[in-house]
């Protein structure tokens, strides 16, 4: 990981930029992802479990010949595990040339969010992490949580490497 990437994180951590966001839902909350990071959205397919990884790493899928890992975002965010439904989707992301999938309850829409409707993430207090969030997008009377997906997925990188080693 180079300095350049770290800088990118920092600037993103500061505040989300205006632009198009793909929104999806976990439980009743809606989240937003920069659309440029999204490679495609696919329905849930059979997942092969991988041993010795954190539970939120569900396993790997065959995306037209590529073997890509999928992460259950519910588990990642410490939300309650639910059965997958017809609406459950895998959003395939391309982040820093890493291809990964995230499992979400359902995909909502693509939104144009203007800079003036983006607010910095609230400070939850000293013990609360908010570095996954790069802003809150206000659309009408609703609020979309804009995610720093790089941070979320790269954290997994180190997590996955560490877990088997400490086992």
């Amino acid at each position: 990981m180079t300095n350049k990437n770290m800088d990118q994180f920092d600037s993103l951590a500061a505040l989300a930029k205006e632009g198009k966001y793909l929104t999806f839902a976990l439980r009743n909350e809606e989240y937003g992802l920069e659309i440029l990071k999204v490679r495609e959205i696919i329905g849930l397919m059979e997942i092969t479990a991988i041993p010795n990884v954190p539970a939120y790493v569900r396993g790997v899928i065959n995306l037209r010949g590529k073997v890509i890992p999928v992460i259950d975002l519910r588990l990642k965010f410490n939300l309650k595990e639910v059965d997958y439904t017809n609406e459950t989707c895998v959003i395939v992301l391309n982040v820093n040339d890493l291809i990964m999938g995230i499992i979400v309850d359902r995909v909502c829409e693509v939104l144009d969010i203007a800079q003036q409707s983006i607010e910095p993430s609230p400070n939850f207090g000293a013990n609360m992490r908010n570095d996954f969030i790069i802003g809150m997008g206000k659309i009408g009377d609703k609020v979309k949580i804009l995610l720093n997906i790089e941070r979320i997925l790269t954290e997994d990188a180190s997590a996955m490497r560490e877990v088997p080693a400490t086992e």
């Binding site: 059979e46 092969t48 073997v67 890493l98 990964m100 080693a165």
Partner: peptide
């Protein structure tokens, strides 16, 4: 033999993956 995409290059106990005849991934 297929490369594991994403960050899965260093799994202990798994050296790679392949696509089985049913289309599922086999480790």
């Amino acid at each position: 033999i297929k490369r594991l995409e994403g960050n899965l290059g260093y799994l202990k106990g798994i050296s790679g993956a392949t696509i089985l005849s049913d289309g599922k991934v086999g480790l």
